[in-house]
């Protein structure tokens, strides 16, 4: 997402709707000695795909992963000319982008070209991900960018810098490890200590990321009850883990709320993307948590998790 102010036409919501862009399909395959195998053991929540079990034999460390996407644009003619982003001599490109904070990497690749005489576009693209390349969460999205154009003295307002991105859309996430993107959870061994604790090491929630570096639920593998959570360690399968996460979220929200400045920044949207403040704002607005008292907060958090995950 860019906060910059640009002097050339870009793809706004109206143009996006006019074009009719859809992501028809996202499929996953991996390679082993027998060839290519489709991974159908995927948990999908909105546009977040988690490769859950290893029943199919897929291992992020050992196997290449192939992501197959099918993108469709009903009418690309809207991109050219007066209401569009380039003139009749422009050539546009469709790109797939990926970003992964947890893997410290990002990249892009071109998946299609759009010419002024095109009408409908259907792209079927396969992206290969090497074994042991990514960990955690990888965010993907698509963009339409300028491949080339011939400026005409009549329409100098069009952008003529190749590589300029006119709009990004259809984001989706792939989760390689961990127990979903809801919360940073780690495991440690502490004999004679309780089953879990919350570590809060944040100081600047508007900039610090919502990752285990700054806050985490630590589960204690030395606790006798750890086995109840540990079977698969998938949130869906463990009511105990849902309760732990709920309680931890109450502690964290309460801690953050105690700082008036921080709370105001959250409510007014004054924070960096991906920050702790951004995550809390998302939870508050999307799930409408009731923060008027600890009891109500605890209840509304448990209600959310129960609805989203518990059934």
């Amino acid at each position: 997402m860019s906060n910059s102010f640009v002097m050339y036409p870009t793809i706004d919501e109206n143009l996006f709707d006019l074009m009719g862009i859809t992501l028809n399909n996202v499929k996953f395959f991996f390679l082993n000695e027998e060839g290519e195998i489709e991974i159908d053991d995927i948990e999908r929540e909105n546009m977040s795909y988690q490769i859950v079990s290893t029943l199919t034999g897929y291992s992020p460390q050992k196997n290449e992963l192939i992501i197959e996407v099918e993108l469709e644009i009903t009418d690309v003619r809207h991109l050219f000319g007066e209401e569009g982003v380039t003139n009749a001599f422009g050539v546009l490109g469709i790109a797939l982008h990926w970003y992964s904070v947890s893997s410290s990497q990002r990249g892009s690749c071109k998946i299609h070209e759009i010419h002024p005489m095109d009408k409908k576009v259907l792209v079927n693209y396969r992206k290969k991900i090497n074994a042991s390349e990514f960990r955690g969460v990888v965010d993907f999205n698509f963009s339409i960018y300028l491949e080339s154009m011939k400026p005409n003295f009549l329409d100098e307002f069009y952008c003529n810098t190749p590589g300029t991105i006119f709009g990004q859309f259809l984001p989706f996430k792939l989760i390689f490890d961990g127990r979903g993107s809801m919360f940073p959870i780690t495991v440690e061994s502490r004999p004679n200590a309780p089953l879990w604790r919350v570590l809060m090491e944040f100081g600047d929630i508007c900039n610090e990321t919502f990752t285990s570096e700054y806050l985490q639920i630590c589960l204690n593998s030395a606790h006798p009850q750890f086995q109840i959570i540990n079977e698969g360690l998938s949130i869906k399968k463990s009511p105990l883990l849902i309760e732990i996460i709920s309680s931890a979220l109450v502690i964290i929200v309460d801690e953050i709320k105690s700082d008036q400045n921080d709370w105001e920044n959250i409510l007014s949207g004054n924070y960096q993307e991906g920050s702790i403040a951004a995550a809390i704002h998302y939870f508050l607005t999307t799930f409408e948590w009731d923060v008027s008292s600890l009891n109500k907060l605890s209840y509304s958090i448990r209600n959310t998790l129960n609805e989203k995950i518990g059934r």
């Binding site: 906060n3 490109g93 892009s108 810098t161 590589g163 991105i165």
Partner: peptide, 19 residues
Amino acid sequence: TAMIQTVEPCFFSGGLVGY
């Protein structure tokens, strides 16, 4: 950091080297 908000380096004129 500023340019990469709006331009993808590998699609620039001359590709990455050009960028």
